[in-house]
Simulated assay, not measured.
Amino acid sequence: MSSPDESVRPEPAASSPVETLSLSNGEPMSEIENPSDPEAFVEAVLSVVDGIPAGRVMSYGQVAATLGSRSARGVGRIMALHGSDVAWWRVVQASGFPPAGHDARAHEHYVAEGTPLVESSREPGFRVARSGFVGHEDR
């Protein structure tokens, strides 16, 4: 049986504005020589996050998939340790809920950027609407 949150999970973006980003050394992200190199992965994650447009979000899994990885938890760990210098609030749970423990600060950013939000009966009382995800197309 599916959980209620599955209905809000966006499809992975086949093409999105962040796919064309390059690492700071100019190398395309799709051509990272050693994907298991932790420093390169950190830089790649932060580059993807830096490329998420204002008012839009990506899930941890979408960020990972953009880099050819399946490690949503790895992206979460990188954001926890290194994400303070990028727009961290633009990376959310697949259900649209903001990063755990940062809902009040994230909400301020969402309102300021015009990120589409919907009410939720689950704490913190809101989540990012499906239309706010990068790669979501109104149908």
Rank of each mutant, 00 (worst) to 15 (best):
Q62H: 09
S7C: 08
G83L: 05
Y60A: 08
Y110W: 05
G132I: 04
F126V: 11
W89V: 07
P124S: 00
H107Q: 10
T20C: 07
R122C: 11
L117K: 08
V48Q: 03
E137A: 05
S131D: 08
V45I: 13
P28H: 05
G76M: 05
E31C: 10
S2N: 14
L23K: 02
I32L: 07
A40P: 04
S2Y: 08
V118S: 09
F126S: 10
L46K: 06
S71G: 15
T115R: 00
H102M: 07
R9C: 09
T66Y: 02
R122G: 02
R9M: 12
R56K: 15
L46D: 12
Y110V: 02
E113T: 08
G51Q: 05
S36L: 14
A65E: 14
G83V: 00
A72E: 15
R139C: 11
G51R: 01
V86R: 05
A129I: 09
M29W: 13
F41H: 06
D138W: 06
A40N: 09
E137D: 07
L46S: 04
D85I: 08
Y60W: 06
A80E: 12
L46I: 10
I78M: 02
R139L: 14
A106S: 13
S36D: 15
P124W: 01
P28C: 02
M29C: 10
D103A: 15
D138Y: 06
G26N: 12
P12C: 00
M58K: 08
S24T: 13
G135D: 10
P98S: 03
I32A: 03
G83K: 07
V86M: 04
G51C: 03
V86E: 01
G61F: 01
N25K: 10
I52K: 01
M29H: 07
V63R: 02
E33V: 13
L117E: 04
P99K: 02
V111E: 06
T20G: 13
F41R: 09
A80L: 12
E27G: 05
I78H: 01
G55P: 09
V86N: 06
A87G: 13
R139E: 12
N34H: 14
D5H: 07
S24E: 10
A87Y: 03
V42W: 03
R77F: 04
E11A: 15
S30F: 12
Q62C: 05
P124H: 02
H107S: 12
M29T: 09
N25H: 05
V118K: 12
S36N: 15
G135T: 11
